[in-house]
Design a binder for these strands. Sequence first.
RNA 1: GGUCGGGUGGCAGAGUGGUCGAAUGCACCGGUCUUGAAAACCGGCGAACCUCCGGGUUCCCUGGGUUCGAAUCCCAGCCCGACCGCCA
Length: 428
Amino acid sequence: MLDKKFILEYPDVVQKNCDVRGAKADVHRFVQLETECRLMQQQVEELSRKANVVSKSIGVAKDDAERDQRKEEGRTLREQKEQLQEAIDRLTAEARAIYRSLPNLTHPEAPIGAEDHAREIRRGGPEVRKFSFPVLDHVVLAEQHDLIDFEGGARVAGNGFYFLKNEGALLELALQQFVMQFLVGEGFVPTITPDLARAEILQGIGFIPRGPETQIYSVENFDLNLVATAEITLGGLYSGEVLEMEKLPLKMCGVSHCFRTEAGAAGRASRGLYRVHQFTKVEMFAFTLPEQSEAMHQYFCDLECKIFDGLGIPYRVIDTATGDLGGPAYRKFDLEAWMPGRGKAGEYGEVTSTSNCTDYQARRLNIRYKTRGEKGTHLVHTLNGTAVAISRALIAILENYQQPDGSIIIPEVLRKWVGKERIGATEE
RNA sequence: GGUCGGGUGGCAGAGUGGUCGAAUGCACCGGUCUUGAAAACCGGCGAACCUCCGGGUUCCCUGGGUUCGAAUCCCAGCCCGACCGCCA
């Protein structure tokens, strides 16, 4: 959520921001409602004040007759107040709906426009390989080496679920280990988070738990939802808390399973592991002072690059265009890995993303910090970034490391956890 | 899942119908003292919103209810603790 004061002061800026981000919202209607409510609220407060005065006078009234008269007076005042309050509540409901739909402000350097206006800002990892043999995609490779059982997944849980098997399972654990060790070395607090969370927390982070378009699985008869990312649980960890300034910036990383209904995603390129209902992810999260968030965002982006450098996978980084930013993000960088088996002749596919959400999530979740010697509290900034999304990382590894003899080399950094150098090694 | 006990300011903790937005302690801030620090002493110290800058309204887990008036009473929910049951 945005700062209400800011909206009232600069409605045109906010409206323009909504427009470039493709968010339909009538900011001026909001300002009008808000202004009206404030006037009415003042009247309510005046009635409350009078009623409070009356109530206090009853305790010290000298006789019953006076007491009864005052009681009647108090009753009347509070009735009036309630009627007025009901009118305010109606207007407030409309205002709140607009308010909640407003996206975060946008970084001035973020490219303006729809998805295809994203700007490439960086390339990394090794050169894209020239293959001297027909390239297979990860689905075929996984089939050949019995690494993923999509059929079994479908039998048990439906389309979009799968079993990781053999080196597929070991690779998942290896990727978790590699990334967790790396992040601990960078000063992150390692965590394993709940895979379910309350609706309130989901909403605070910016997810909509129920409704026809929801990406979220919810649990019947409970106020619980399967998380779509550990961003939800890590961000929710300190909801309602006041953090000490000295502890900021606070960097956490968390392993969780991620569940997504992928409603409305039908038809989008989604062969194999690319778009699935469940995967494991290591997520980075940071709580920072406002002046630290920009640098932290660059840092998160650097870490994501280092992880893919370490895995030896070619990638590029893009600065996401305004029209493609989620509501809470102020700016977002996506890291796209080269997937040789994707599309006709290989394509880049998104494997990680990092967002600076400034105070947007913190305001909803009420996460603040206190400055020593200063009155009051301030909202922290929150950032998130994928360290590794296992399913998509697997695609990149299998497809980039396939060999002419059909085997798949295991990236060096993962070997100590997988326990071998190669999947399907040919007999020598 | 059951029974009992709890949920109050950054923390601890008092407060069972009206002068309570809330004692006290710790922490924190300012000052005195000191070469400096500590100790001691003095003072300050919750938040949001509105304001004609006098002040006002709201907030004691959440949501309802009783009452002229609720931190305090009633109902429901959530959470925490103890014990019991069940279980990886």
